[in-house]
Design a protein around this nucleic acid. Structure first.
Lengths: 258, 258
DNA sequence: CACGACAGCGTATGCCGTACGCTCAATGCG
DNA sequence: CGCATTGAGCGTACGGCATACGCTGTCGTG
């Protein structure tokens, strides 16, 4: 009879700290936690591209190859980073499920904003990290009093996740793009579109451009184009609202008349 | 007076084929189009990771450095790939806006499914490629008869995009994960979760697991777990439906009572 | 006190993207 | 019709990357 479960996938075991803790030999001065934190520090300061095994090792004052005693590959380190980036999920606030899910969504947004490199990490497979599951759990908990069957709660949350992550990604992309070149994202973007879009091939789009949504065609327009980019943005609220409206209808349909 | 617009950002100019077409000197045997197609062929067959400048050059039977005459960097090539991956957007089908947007969403899903590497390309900034804008235009066109102001149409489509892309990404991740290791994604996933999830820390999640949504805890369950993974998946339809429900409510709110 | 296990690390390999400059074919002009 | 011009294609080279392998020194244990 073994004390631990031997069947856990290796990455999952790593994420949960279920790796063999050595008792013999030299004491470990590095540790998975320290490595992950160092990598995150670098990514926060210099972007994900700056995170290399050599760079992380330098941050820790050790040799590059030392890291491989604690992490099997760089991909595993990225996995650890992506889970660690999601700092402790907040407790649920709000009186009804909608308020709670909404505040959950904004908490996710804030979290990703704090670690913009999060969206660049290629994710493959379902979330299995401790923090990731904590967020998942909180979202499920927000639906506790809806009377929805468990399977449907999962469906709702799994549907909400891409909305929030995708919208967060979009808003960060736009914000970083804007501060990289304000002119190109203001009226410049609209003008660039206008020069390139053929009304015959893009009828609906050119109608939108003509209406001046992407910035006025003549550069004498309003003086505050950055408004919509560096705050939460109305797009986030709108997309979230639409999805939650649909969820509300679904809840009513499922639990209301039966 | 110049014949061409000199103010276009370099990447945009490249995407639209507005690069200087040479008339003197040796004839160009490669061309941006051929390079992009070769890269896509490799990515389709061997994954995005296999796409290197050297590999693409080999595919074309030329030397690695030749590519740089047509493409400024690998990132630019990836940009070209991501736009080219979106083959011609389909004409709108359906009698009302909802049917049309829905079929649009499924067309996007099919497109990304054909080129799974699409989701791995890091996107930074708003869509400006010709194909990308074509899809954007079709989605806007689907909303033509709703009476929505142009700005609100953009809001709706910009909100829909992450839903569709995110959901597509999720379903592809799950599918590829499943075919990589069917056992781990069937009952194995549920069992792994069960061994790791502490009911005190993850109350809502452990309730869901106990209900057997992620596969029964005992391995004697149903015989067809792969069902939900390799088709479009009910998750896609559900998430899309929720969002569109919200959009419907928004349209009614905006144009109905005023 | 001696042994063996294990953290840390030095070396080396084979990729990668890409800067620089040469060669040479095609072109349009004289 | 020949020649200067121009740009395509490519050879070489460099720095950085992830990482396989094996040595060394140290610490807990028998």
């Amino acid at each position: 009879m073994n004390g631990e479960q031997p069947e856990l996938p290796p990455q999952v075991a790593l994420l949960w700290g279920r790796r063999t803790t050595a008792r013999r030999g030299r004491a470990s001065g590095l540790g998975v936690e320290a490595i992950t934190q160092a990598a995150i520090r670098i990514a926060d300061a210099e972007g994900l591209a700056a995170v290399s095994m050599a760079r992380v090792a330098a941050e820790l004052g050790s040799a590059p190859m030392s890291l491989y005693r604690h992490v099997d590959s760089k991909d595993e380190l990225l996995l650890l980073m992506s889970d660690a980036a999601l700092e402790g999920a907040p407790e649920l606030a709000g009186s009804d499920w909608r308020e709670r899910l909404s505040s959950w969504a904004y908490a996710v947004l804030a979290c990703i904003r704090r670690h913009p490199w999060y969206r660049e990490i290629p994710i493959s497979g379902p979330p299995v990290g401790p923090r990731d599951l904590e967020w998942f759990d909180r979202a499920l908990g927000a639906l506790a009093d809806t009377g929805l069957p468990e399977g449907e709660k999962v469906l709702v949350v799994m549907g909400l996740m891409p909305v929030v992550h995708g919208q967060a990604r979009l808003s960060i992309d736009l914000a970083s793009g804007y501060e990289a070149d304000p002119e190109a994202f203001g009226a410049g973007f609209g003008r660039a579109l206008a020069t390139v879009v053929d009304p015959a091939r893009y009828p609906a789009l050119s109608r939108v451009i003509a209406s001046g949504v992407f910035g006025p065609a003549d550069p004498a327009g309003e003086g505050t184009p950055p408004e919509g980019y560096d705050d939460s943005g109305p797009e986030f609220a709108f997309a979230l609202g639409c999805y939650l409206d649909g969820v509300a209808a679904f809840i009513e349909r499922t639990t209301g008349r039966r």
